[in-house]
């Protein structure tokens, strides 16, 4: 096991004393096999207990340790030191308010996530004794990749349109709307369209594609959004150009 002296340049912000952020340098000896999160933990344990950051699972499942690493939104637990020969710049995810140091406030995302109703909506609830709503493997595969989302919000930090127009519902929430729309057990698409097909929904997206590039679990929000734009366009034609609103 090889050890290496890792140089970190870490964004600091203390809401009690600071009006803006600054960068603090740390040098800490790490094993080459470690990830950036390990380095941050070693800094906190041995050099500076005041450094704040969120983490939990250390295995790219919980989605808590998202941060900008050399300008790229990444999970710190999923970013190996061996791929970073020079100084590593660590900042809180952009496009989100900074609570303290590397901790950001995800409130806006959580509110938007709720608005797209990311749960199964049934118009006809079948009695429990009739058993579960069954699904074929084909129907499962239709939405499965979108169900992998861990709500880490890296895609929001990558999306310039979210940064420029804060009312945009954004990649992960819309991809999850698509996940339920595509689910054969769900009957709630009409309700979700009231959010998805608005100006704040898919129509703020200009298909930069950054969301899909940074997703640590290979969800493709850009694909979900383009599919929803096409479907929403056909909806519009049905509602406005066909007799009886296509109903």
């Amino acid at each position: 096991m090889k050890e290496r002296l890792i140089r970190l340049e870490v964004f600091r912000y203390n809401p009690d004393t600071d009006t803006e952020g600054h960068y603090q340098h740390y040098e800490v000896s790490c094993l080459e096999e470690w990830v950036v999160l390990d380095a941050l933990n070693k800094v906190k344990e041995t050099l500076d207990p005041t450094l704040n950051f969120r983490w939990s699972c250390h295995m790219a499942v919980c989605g808590s340790c998202g941060m900008m690493i050399n300008g790229e939104p990444r999970l710190a637990c999923h970013t190996f030191l061996r791929n970073y020969p020079g100084t590593i710049r660590v900042e809180p995810l952009v496009h989100f308010p900074v609570e303290r140091d590397l901790v950001t406030a995800p409130d806006d995302f959580m509110e938007k996530l709720k608005r797209v109703k990311p749960w199964i909506i049934r118009k006809d609830k079948q009695p429990i004794e009739q058993g579960e709503y069954r699904q074929t493997p084909k129907e499962l595969l239709r939405f499965r990749q979108y169900a992998m989302c861990i709500n880490c919000t890296l895609c929001y930090a990558a999306c310039p349109e979210y940064g420029l127009t804060r009312h945009f519902i954004g990649p992960a929430a819309l991809a999850l709307a698509h996940r339920y729309n595509q689910d054969s057990r769900d009957q709630g698409r009409d309700e979700r369209q009231e959010v998805v097909a608005t100006k704040e929904g898919v129509w703020e997206c200009t298909f930069v594609g950054a969301c899909s590039e940074v997703c640590p679990v290979h969800v493709d929000p850009a694909s979900a959004l383009q599919q929803m734009k096409i479907a929403s366009s056909f909806d519009w034609i049905k509602e406005h150009l066909l007799p009886g609103g296509g109903k």
């Binding site: 009231e194 097909a197 608005t198 100006k199 929904g201 129509w203 366009s233 909806d235 034609i237």
Partner: peptide, 8 residues
């Protein structure tokens, strides 16, 4: 919020 006419 009303649905957008952006499809046009």
């Amino acid at each position: 919020m009303a649905k957008s006419n952006k499809p046009v």
